[in-house]
Amino acid sequence: MSAWSASSASSVSAMDDELTRWAAERAPKLIARAEEQAVAVLRDALLDAARRARLEEVSPVAVPPRTASAPAATGELVWTYCVAGADAAMPEDSMGVAGSDIGRIEAAGLVALVSRVPAAEFAAEPLRENLNDLAWLERVARAHEAVLEETFALTTIVPLRMCTLYESDEGVTAMLQRERAALLDALERLDGREEWGVKVIVDRGRVAQAAHAASPEAATYEEELGERTGGGAYILRRRLERHVHERADSLAAEVAAGVHARLQDWAIDAITHGAQNRDLSGHEGDMLLNGAYLVEADRADGLRALVDELEAHHRDLGARIELTGPWPPFNFVAGPGA
């Protein structure tokens, strides 16, 4: 109380400064956020308008969109799933994308798994339309993945990016011949290995609590806070919040780096991606790590044990570590020649 009255004049201006600074700090974030939202809304509107314009272009008279595919889109295209060694076992009687049969095209000591799909649905133009249809996307993605997983259970594969299509079998043959060296390299490197996904999700509040508890500065702030009221207390509290916020950010980064380092040591190869969009993934909490790890298939049990250990280690942060897999090595096949 005495400290406050003795320095009230300077404290008031200090508070103004503090508030101004606080607002100035927040403003860019708020503006950026608002802009981001505005851009997203605009983009969606443009996308929608472009889509509609394109549909009208194809069919000036209002026709149901699904039947309005470009005139060139007739016949069939060759959908590709993956490449394996020519002597590799392949799944039998599986169903592929769009209810198709699975076929094999062999060349250059390699085999590509393929399906014949209707051009009306998969030619460039209708394909882009269809990719924006959630139900279509999900159906095709799951069908594609099912074929990959069945094959992957039998043999080493190089998964191709979804929607790599050819106009004819010859196109696939030429690709196998052209990419032979890189594909063989990849097959050798991936032999007996599989990909696992690891996501670390923490409770932001618990991270802040832990950061708070571990910070001597926070304790000092609190001591001071006990002696103040009014504007002085407000400023101090804001400072404390900012301090804890920063500490929580660094703690989160440390945890992510620590978990990744342990997994990386253990894996043959590793890669991290940005956190998934919360709206799309539906995760609760902060995603600190979104990584993929290439591991020897016969060591997968060890990976589970390690993940359990790491999760237990960070239990005070409300940490959940999600392990998904085994996946075909999607994240460990760079472009050809890489």
């Binding site: 295209l77 590709t80 490449v83 998969f122 030619a123 460039a124 394909l127 190089v158 998964p159 191709l160 990016r161 979804m162 929607c163 790599t164 299509l165 050819y166 106009e167 196109g171 690709m175 990419e179 594909l183 990849a186 999607f330 994240n331 096949v333 760079a334 472009g335 050809p336």
Partner: peptide, 10 residues
């Protein structure tokens, strides 16, 4: 992910 190889449609 997946290997990016030029197709007639990619």
């Amino acid at each position: 992910g997946g290997v990016i190889i030029a197709g007639d449609i990619t």
